[in-house]
Amino acid sequence: MTSAVALLPYQQLAALNEAYRKAVSRRRLRVALAAAVFVAALAIAAFGAEVNLKTFFSYLGNFVSYFDRILKLDDGSRVWTNLGEWFWGWRKWLKLLGETLLISYVGTLTGAIFAFVLNFLAAENTSSSRTLRFAVRRILEFARTVPGIVFALIFVIAFGLGPMAGVLAVAIHSTGALGKQFSEIVENADMKPVEGVRSTGAGWMSCMRFAVLPQVIAGYASYALLRFEINVRESSVMGFVGAGGIGQELVVAIRKFYYSDVSAILVMIVVTVFIIDISTGWLRGRLFGRDART
């Protein structure tokens, strides 16, 4: 197929070309500059983190062979040839996994309750006083920025070793994270129902209960389920600092080089996380329609 393309006269073309080149070259220069700054930052970072490519490459083999070793039983055969031997401690591990799940469940629920109480005070449109809002927001920020495991470390000293410290750490972190997400939902809520309820002479509590809550409750549940999923992952390491759950068992296995135990526990954690992921996804889909899944 032939087609005629009308070419612009040369001078016009040259002017356009010139302008295009200028525009592109300015952008290219900016990208190049940004890239240079970034590479410089990386170089400084590499220096600071004691990155040594030589050790990395000489140890990379170790990484592969580490996975080779954790997939071998003591007698040298592959783990999946003898499942009974691989998962020899499954009763104990299942119990600890159950404890991990309970830690994240109780922690998430407690966090959700506190977040529920606090979020109306933190949201722009429902908070009654400016100073109160500022204070609540800072508290939530603090609770969510300090990593959960740091709280766990401190709580282990205050409340003693055991899952209680883990639960409280998960609860505080969830309060911070959920409080922010909840208050964002409230800020997106429609305020007309609130005016309607207020015009009947209702107080603040009734406004929240009858005008705001029906709009936001589904979003709350969805975020809380999502948080539960994240917390399951997080409470699997609470045992590293003595705050209960499967982590204790895992850290011992890794530190003492019980290779096949490491892989067995990791497999159990991953499978548990999968099951929780899929079931909370299913639950959110059932409760709030397909959109809420992502």
């Binding site: 997080e234 390491v237 590293f240 954690i269």
Partner: peptide, 11 residues
């Protein structure tokens, strides 16, 4: 993703 960063650090 199912394995926490701290576990990877130990490994």
């Amino acid at each position: 993703r199912g394995v926490d960063t701290l576990i990877w650090a130990l490994v």
